[in-house]
Amino acid sequence: MTPDLVALAAEVLSRARARGETIATAESCTGGLVAACLTEVAGASDVVDRGFVTYSNAAKRQMLGVTAATLEATGAVSEETAIEMAEGALRNSAASRSVSITGIAGPGGSEHKPEGRVCFALAQTGVPTVSLTCEFGALGRSAVREAAAREALQLLKI
């Protein structure tokens, strides 16, 4: 984890603290990197409630309530799945906001879902969930994971 990611995480925590918010993460391709960045900052425990690492589809279903129908219709790498992940993290935690990440860090991918495609969602109590997809490209596994963590932290900063 790079110093700029930790600095960004510190900014996220400071803003959340000022707003009285708590955070949960739901991560697939980043494998807990966002939660690790947040908890790298001393004192994060007053803001970070929990992190879900749901790498498999079964974990997405069991831990977050992502529906089999969504996974079948849109696949794990989709904004629809990201939305269900974020909303499931919010529902299954004491957090007031959550961010989710699901994507293809590489190597690999397909014509329809290329390497470097990552979908995100931000869910907040009493606010409609927002989602987005970033095409980071075939930067290599570590670089895609770091870029995805950075984007998720930026979403949490909003």
Rank of each mutant, 00 (worst) to 15 (best):
residue 129 T to D: 09
residue 22 T to Q: 12
residue 98 S to A: 14
residue 114 P to Q: 11
residue 152 A to I: 00
residue 90 L to M: 03
residue 80 E to F: 12
residue 147 A to M: 05
residue 63 M to V: 11
residue 88 G to Y: 06
residue 28 S to L: 02
residue 92 N to P: 01
residue 34 V to A: 01
residue 85 M to N: 01
residue 61 R to A: 04
residue 9 A to K: 05
residue 20 G to M: 14
residue 127 V to Y: 15
residue 85 M to Y: 05
residue 142 S to T: 07
residue 117 R to S: 14
residue 77 V to H: 00
residue 94 A to Y: 09
residue 13 L to V: 08
residue 114 P to I: 15
residue 86 A to F: 03
residue 31 G to W: 01
residue 110 S to Q: 11
residue 95 A to E: 01
residue 92 N to M: 07
residue 52 F to C: 04
residue 86 A to N: 07
residue 89 A to G: 04
residue 60 K to C: 08
residue 61 R to P: 00
residue 134 C to E: 14
residue 46 D to F: 09
residue 113 K to N: 11
residue 118 V to Q: 06
residue 105 A to L: 11
residue 53 V to H: 01
residue 79 E to T: 13
residue 12 V to H: 03
residue 23 I to V: 13
residue 30 T to A: 06
residue 76 A to T: 06
residue 26 A to F: 02
residue 44 A to G: 10
residue 156 L to N: 03
residue 109 G to K: 10
residue 62 Q to R: 09
residue 31 G to H: 00
residue 92 N to Y: 05
residue 21 E to D: 12
residue 157 K to V: 01
residue 121 A to D: 03
residue 79 E to Q: 06
residue 86 A to Y: 04
residue 60 K to M: 07
residue 125 T to E: 12
residue 5 L to H: 11
residue 101 I to W: 00
residue 44 A to K: 12
residue 92 N to I: 04
residue 126 G to M: 12
residue 101 I to Q: 02
residue 23 I to H: 06
residue 25 T to Q: 09
residue 132 L to V: 14
residue 15 R to K: 15
residue 76 A to N: 04
residue 53 V to T: 08
residue 138 A to R: 13
residue 22 T to H: 12
residue 128 P to C: 11
residue 110 S to H: 13
residue 104 I to K: 10
residue 108 G to F: 06
residue 140 G to Q: 02
residue 18 A to E: 15
residue 78 S to E: 05
residue 22 T to E: 13
residue 130 V to A: 11
residue 156 L to F: 08
residue 45 S to F: 12
residue 61 R to Q: 09
residue 69 A to Y: 06
residue 18 A to F: 14
residue 125 T to F: 13
residue 80 E to W: 05
residue 153 L to K: 04
residue 106 G to P: 00
residue 117 R to G: 08
residue 135 E to V: 08
residue 96 S to K: 08
residue 38 L to D: 09
residue 61 R to M: 10
residue 93 S to C: 07
residue 146 E to G: 04
residue 140 G to H: 00
residue 42 A to C: 15
